[in-house]
């Protein structure tokens, strides 16, 4: 299946949870927040949510702001 991660296309083989995606992509232990298809995904749901084909995942972190 294909998902997008921060607007970049990503091919996934098999099934993968948000937790596993974060681990595979190097976000483990980083302070990030996640949205899937424009909806906020609370941390406690990372293990339980299995990504679906065409899901759009946003991963954000603290940044400078005014």
């Amino acid at each position: 299946m294909q998902i997008t991660l921060n607007s970049n296309a990503l091919e996934i083989e098999g099934t993968i949870s948000i937790s596993n995606l974060l681990m595979c992509k190097g976000y483990k232990d980083k302070l990030v927040a996640v949205a899937v298809n424009g909806e906020f995904m609370p941390r406690e749901n990372y293990d339980g949510y299995i990504l679906q084909d065409k899901d759009s995942v946003e991963i954000v972190a603290p940044m400078q702001g005014g």
């Binding site: 921060n6 992509k25 976000y27 980083k30 954000v60 972190a61 603290p62 940044m63 400078q64």
Partner: peptide
Amino acid sequence: TVSLRRENAAGKGQ
């Protein structure tokens, strides 16, 4: 004030 932006694995935001 702070904000959020897309994070790459390099972890600039951290």
